[in-house]
């Protein structure tokens, strides 16, 4: 609240005095670079998206590269050359990602050089005892447990999805659990204001090596027809440090919307000689039906 009120006043001041105008200065020109995007899910297909960066003057919707040369390795052993599927997505036949392995990628393209990255896959963190409780203010409380592995830095992400008749889609939730302290959007009071508009990731800094019981809250009025059974899916992602930083930096960027009041945030990247992210996660999920 303190930030919102403060920034509201700064904005008022700016609008009061300031004026905006277009500058006759050329936008700085930059050399394009390779961009690798891949979030490898354990037991999922190995897929990679390859494109090139574009400067604003040459903005085009088709920056993906269909004929890049991509070599993928598992534990430094060559797995093969990846094949273009469509729109810049590459795969390795029907090869699935294994837990506990390291994966190396090398992407080369004429005039853009070679970009490289590496990640190590994780074991999934199992959800235990998912339960729910209907609370006041149309609040639906989900509680679940999971075990955090001791003596190592772990990162997680929680997504809550609801069944809309054809598929599960993301829904907003909030939590006052300590794990979301330092979230990118401050939690205030009342369910309407404090949905996690910030990040959905957290570290085990405050829960290291414990069995954790976490409660999250969603609107109970999502489904208009109270006769219909409501189906929710809770997904717990065990993610790498790079995944955590990437999600947080992306969320921070969109929260701040290039505001002049914040210092610039850049998207986290673990790709050398290029941009993008090449990292992994292991997911466990549980579905629950509200009667």
């Amino acid at each position: 609240m303190k930030y919102q009120l403060l920034f509201l006043n700064i904005c008022l001041l700016f609008f009061h005095f300031s004026c905006e105008e277009e500058l006759q200065v050329p936008i700085p020109d930059e050399e394009p670079k390779l961009v690798i995007n891949s979030l490898l899910g354990v037991d999922s297909l190995l897929r990679v998206h390859v494109s090139k960066s574009s400067v604003f003057q040459e903005q085009s919707s088709n920056t993906f590269l269909p004929d890049a040369n991509i070599i993928i390795k598992e534990n430094n052993q060559l797995l093969g050359k990846m094949i273009h599927e469509n729109d810049g997505w590459y795969s390795l036949n029907s090869y699935t990602v294994k837990a506990g392995n390291s994966y190396q990628i090398e992407v080369s393209y004429p005039d853009l050089g070679t970009a490289e990255s590496e990640t190590k896959t994780l074991q999934k963190a199992a959800i235990t005892n998912l339960s729910y409780q209907i609370k006041e203010e149309n609040k639906l409380e989900f509680t679940f447990q999971f075990d955090d592995e001791a003596l190592q830095e772990n990162y997680y992400m929680i997504l809550l999805k609801a069944y809309n008749g054809t598929s599960f889609s993301d829904i907003d939730f909030y939590s006052d659990n300590i794990i979301f302290n330092g979230n990118l959007s401050g939690n205030s009071i009342g369910i309407q204001q404090n949905m996690l508009r910030g990040s959905h990731t957290f570290s085990d800094e405050n829960i290291d090596g414990e069995t954790n019981s976490i409660s999250i809250y969603a609107f109970n009025e999502l489904f208009n027809d109270s006769e219909v059974n409501q189906e929710y899916k809770l997904e717990l992602y065990h993610i790498t440090s790079d995944y955590f930083k990437y999600e947080r930096s992306l969320t921070a960027y969109y929260n701040r919307d290039d505001s002049p009041f914040y210092k610039k945030v850049n998207l986290h990247s673990n790709v050398s000689c290029g941009y993008g992210i090449f990292t992994s996660y292991a997911i466990d999920s549980k579905t629950i039906t509200i009667q």
Binding site: N37, H49, F64, G88, L250, D258, G276
Partner: peptide
């Protein structure tokens, strides 16, 4: 100045790509 656009994968939908400005 964020003067470069790159494709970025959604952390919530690993198959979804969008465009994000970076510096």
């Amino acid at each position: 100045l964020s003067s470069t656009n790159i494709s970025s994968v959604s952390p919530y939908y690993p198959g979804k790509i969008s465009s994000t400005p970076i510096f």
